[in-house]
């Protein structure tokens, strides 16, 4: 079969058709070679999502069925305190993580950019947490946050006897403990991306700023920062996908507790399709998780389309 495809293509090329058309020519091997991609794109990212969507309108329990119950699952979802708290938690977690990650990441990048000695050593230190899984990250920080034997007790033994630092045991602060663990794990990546962005800024900008007598910190904040949109966007998108999916680190650190203080949508879904044996409810929650992603993609599409139209009009 491959020989057939080859010879017919070669024939088409040798004959009158220009190379560009030959390249566009239908090639069987290209389809055969990308079969896994076709199966994944269509089978997983289209058909599976459609099935999730359909089952979210049924009363499926342990196994999926097709007894449609309309919007019942969605009504029940938003009536559930557990879900509403999960959504609130993921927003709080997301905003805190994103802000801490971007601010701390940019600070590290700026300090790394000062022609320091041992840059590679510092880079290795800031990045190594990312090589460790979020489960490992969660378990280590859980241990350090231990109220009786962790950081709190170590500092108290130094003489500061009413020192308080055990965020995971308190409903009001548990989520910030998870944020700290997550930022420790991921901020090195933000630093690496932003540092690459900083180094990509034209050197002339620095000379110009210096001649104008603008202090370095203002140059970094008001001139260079707006110039590295690409790197900022990359780091930002990366953190966002991490936030929507947040699962491993919470399971390892708090299992969603104390109470429901660190319960997250991703955990809600997994719990409903496993322990709670309520597939319909789980699918309704999963499809709701997809909404913000779809909204961003549609927004992006509209913006691109608009920019294209403006360009065409300008011409």
């Amino acid at each position: 079969m491959s020989q057939y495809a080859q010879s017919s293509d070669a024939a088409a090329l040798v004959s009158t058709s220009p190379p560009r058309r030959a390249r566009r020519k239908f090639n069987v091997m290209s389809i055969v070679g990308t079969t896994p991609m076709i199966l994944t794109a269509v089978g997983v990212f289209v058909i599976c999502i459609i099935f999730s969507f359909i089952w979210s309108f049924t009363n499926s329990k342990l196994f999926p069925n097709f007894n449609f119950v309309g919007m019942d699952q969605y009504n029940r979802l938003w009536a559930s305190d557990r879900w509403r708290i999960s959504v609130g938690n993921v927003f709080l977690f997301g905003v805190c993580s994103l802000v801490a990650n971007m601010v701390f990441g940019y600070l590290l990048a700026v300090f790394m950019d000062q022609r320091i000695k041992q840059e590679d050593l510092f880079r290795s230190i800031f990045l190594y947490p990312f090589a460790m899984s979020l489960v490992v990250t969660g378990l280590v920080w859980q241990w350090m946050f231990d109220p009786n034997l962790g950081i709190q007790s170590a500092v108290r033994q130094l003489g500061w006897t009413d020192f308080q630092f055990a965020p995971l045991t308190n409903q009001a602060t548990a989520i910030y403990g998870v944020v700290l663990g997550g930022v420790w794990n991921g901020v090195g990546v933000t630093m690496a991306i932003l540092l690459a962005g900083l180094r990509g800024v034209d050197a002339e900008i620095w000379k110009a700023a210096k001649i104008d007598g603008i202090p370095a910190w203002r140059t970094y904040l008001f001139i260079v920062l707006p110039m590295m949109k690409g790197a900022l966007l990359t780091a930002f998108i990366l953190q966002c996908t991490g936030v929507v999916r947040v699962f491993d680190i919470v399971i390892a650190m708090t299992q969603g507790g104390p109470g429901v203080a660190t319960q997250m949508p991703a955990i809600y879904v997994i719990q409903h399709i496993t322990d709670r044996v309520n597939v319909g409810q789980g699918m309704a929650a999963a499809c709701t998780m997809l909404l913000p992603v779809l909204a961003v993609i549609v927004l992006q599409g509209v913006l691109q389309w608009n920019a294209k139209r403006k360009k065409e009009k300008a011409i």
């Binding site: 794109a41 990212f45 999502i49 999730s52």
Partner: peptide, 22 residues
């Protein structure tokens, strides 16, 4: 197909996990 695949990079895994199990 490539566009769908890139979309897949941003999809929360929970949306596809259960149908994939089945």
């Amino acid at each position: 197909l490539f566009g769908i695949l890139i979309f897949g990079a941003f999809v929360p895994y929970q949306v596809v996990i259960y149908p994939l199990i089945i």
